[in-house]
Amino acid sequence: MPRFDNQTVLVTGGTGGQGASHVRALHAEGANVVIGDIDAERGAALADELGPRARFTHLDVTDEGSWAGAVLAAQNAFGALDVLVNNAGVQNPPAPIEHTDHATWSRILDVNLTGTFLGIKTAAPALRRTAGRANGGAIVNIASTMGLGGTAHYAPYVASKWAVRGLTRTAALELGRDRIRVNTIHPGVIATPFIHEPAAGATAAIADFYSPEPFAIPRLGEPTDVTRLLLFLASSEASFITGSEYVIDGGLLLGPALQAESA
């Protein structure tokens, strides 16, 4: 039996590189998928591609009313909500802290942190109603390896992802007795437009600053690398895991893998 048969999953940022990968894989595993995004054209096209077990709903993660509408859309379409994937995120144009304007700071935290907070807050009652099923409920927050250390010129993004870690742990404590598990994934450098295209207002992409050559696994990650971990954490296979953090970065945080000279 597919891992998510008869379950409904809401994925935010569901049209992006990682988001669309998550949506397609969850659907292939039997889930009813609700694609939450601000890009109506791409969202509707993806839902049409997947068929009757998929719906697009316009979702601005910074707006509590928009969240209420997305959860209601999931319930109206499929009768319940079982899993929330807080995947939506934005990157700031690189700049030192002293040259980062307040509007940029606020925008990044609004999407990456407040958006995750509002998702947990709004989805929790719906997840609680369905958590009595065998699998319980699940929330998976997508953070970043930048939430595990400092990165020069990316203060708003780094701060937002650090904060998601604390939010995840708090939510795990509050919701665990309701059989709702809350975990975090920290992707490293994943080959998506988010990495390969400059953020709004920037001239360089994140990929311009990272070569995978020093990684223990010397390649950029693929969206499917993250998706496979997500499928595990959202499923009943992870029924005893909550408040945990999973790094998927090819060894980026380990430091450089030096090659010994051949004899």
Results as ranks from 00 to 15, higher is better:
Tyr157Arg: 14
Arg165Ile: 13
His186Glu: 14
Thr170Phe: 04
Ser106Glu: 12
Val61Leu: 07
Pro156Met: 11
Phe209Gln: 08
Thr114Tyr: 03
Thr57Leu: 10
Val164Ile: 15
Ser244Val: 03
Asn32Lys: 11
Phe232Asn: 06
Met1Glu: 14
Ala54His: 01
Gly51Pro: 07
Asn32Gly: 04
Pro198Val: 11
Gly19Asn: 12
Leu252Tyr: 05
Ser66Thr: 03
His58Arg: 14
Leu229Pro: 01
Ala31Asn: 04
Val164Glu: 01
Val158His: 03
Ala238Met: 06
Asp249Tyr: 07
Ala152Pro: 04
Thr100Phe: 02
Ile185Asp: 10
Gly147Leu: 14
Ala47Asn: 09
Asp110Gly: 09
Ala40Tyr: 00
Thr192Val: 10
Ile195Thr: 13
His153Phe: 09
His196Lys: 11
Leu252Met: 15
Asp82Gly: 04
Gly243Val: 10
Gly19Ser: 09
Phe56Arg: 11
Ala260Met: 04
Ala123Phe: 06
Ala20Arg: 15
Asp63Ser: 08
Gly221Ile: 06
Val61Trp: 03
Leu230Met: 12
Thr192Trp: 01
Thr203Asn: 04
Asn76Gly: 06
Asn6Leu: 04
Ala163Asn: 05
Leu26Gly: 03
Gly13Glu: 12
Leu233Cys: 10
Gly150Lys: 12
Thr168Trp: 01
Ala73Ser: 05
Ala73Pro: 00
Gln91His: 11
Ala191Arg: 14
Glu222Lys: 14
Ala202Ile: 09
Leu220Lys: 06
Arg179Glu: 07
His186Asn: 12
Ala40Cys: 05
Leu175Thr: 00
His99Tyr: 11
Gly89His: 03
Val61Arg: 09
Asp60Leu: 15
Arg107Gly: 01
Ser236Thr: 08
Gln7Asp: 02
Gly176Trp: 01
Asp48Tyr: 01
Ala25Glu: 08
Ala28Gly: 12
Asp225Thr: 04
Tyr157Leu: 05
Val111Cys: 07
Ala152Val: 07
Ala205Met: 06
Gly16Met: 14
Ala238Phe: 01
Gly36Val: 08
Thr168Ala: 06
Val34Ile: 12
Phe78Asp: 06
Arg179Met: 05
Val85Trp: 02
Leu173Tyr: 00
Leu230Gly: 14
Lys121Arg: 15
Thr184Ile: 09
Leu127Ala: 06
Ala47Pro: 05
Val83Arg: 02
Ala238Lys: 06
Leu253Arg: 11
Ile142His: 04
Phe215Ser: 07
